[in-house]
Structure formats: structure tokens, C-alpha cells
Amino acid sequence: MSTIVLYGVTASLLAFSFFKDRKKTLQALRKAFKALENILPEFLVVILLVGLLLALMDPAFISRLIGVDSGILGLVIALVVGSITLIPGFIAFPTAAMLLQGGAGYMQIGAFISTLMMVGVVTIPVEKKYFGLRLTVLRNSLAFLFSIVVALVIGLAMGEL
């Protein structure tokens, strides 16, 4: 759905731009291509790593790790697994719902979802290219710490703490 909107918006803007100024539009497309080519090696590395990680950590494996009464250890595991993996939201949320049904705690799921979205260990090669290593590490560390807070608040809100 959001992909259709994205394409719709892009296509209309591109058409409008082309109508207004053909030369500028071609320049924009050239820039787009160059920017993409510039980051392509890093993207490809990330894709391979994500492929391997997803193969290693299927939902059944994760639910064993953060299952019923996994407690603090489960929380830590959820934080780490979420930080390392990169799963698209439309897979992550149904998976999380499945894990909950399988007996995982809301606190652990909160930790998993939060680090999944905010912390990206495998995407460091891409992030580093634009932000430098130092800022990349700092941003991910702060996001990791914040995810602990998120997990605790979720635990409180869902009556687990």
C-alpha cells in the first residue's frame, strides 16, 4: 500500500518536473543514479548479511529464546537479537504477535521491536558511509539504551512489572 503511494508520488513529481524543465529532470535522474551507485557496494554487503542472519534466526528459534518466563535474560536476548537482525515491519509485527501467542512476554517483545527498528548492526556499513563510524556507533548505542526504557515502560503498561 505505502509502496503504491511512494510510486504514485514519485511518478507524478517526475512527470511534473519533466513538463516544467526537461534538462533539470535529466540532471535529477543522473544524480539519483550516481547516489545509488555510490552506496551500492555497502547495500549489497548488508543484503548478504541480512540473508544469512534471517536464515540463522527463524521465528521458532527466536520464540525459544524469549519465551515464557525468560525474564531478564530473555529481555537481554530480545535486545541483542533485535539490534542485529533487520526484518521488514510487515513481517516483524505478525511474527511478534505469533511470539506473544507462543508465550513471549510483552516486555521482551517491546525490546525486540524497538531495537529492531532503531538499532541496526548489520546496516552499520551503510550508515558509516554518511555519518562516520563515531556518530554511527553513538547513535546506535543511544537507541539501544532507549530501547531498554521502552521495554520497561511497555512491561509496566502491560502489567508485567
Binding site: 508520488v9 514519485t10 517526475l14 529532470t25 535529477a28 535522474l29 544524480k31 539519483a32 547516489a35 545509488l36
Partner: peptide
């Protein structure tokens, strides 16, 4: 599409 939008943003 993200990169095309970026190119347009950059130029316009």
C-alpha cells in the same frame, strides 16, 4: 523511487 525523489529534491 527514494533516490529519484532525492534527485528531484536536490535539483528543484
Amino acid at each position: 523511487p527514494i533516490f529519484v525523489l532525492l534527485g528531484l529534491l536536490d535539483v528543484w
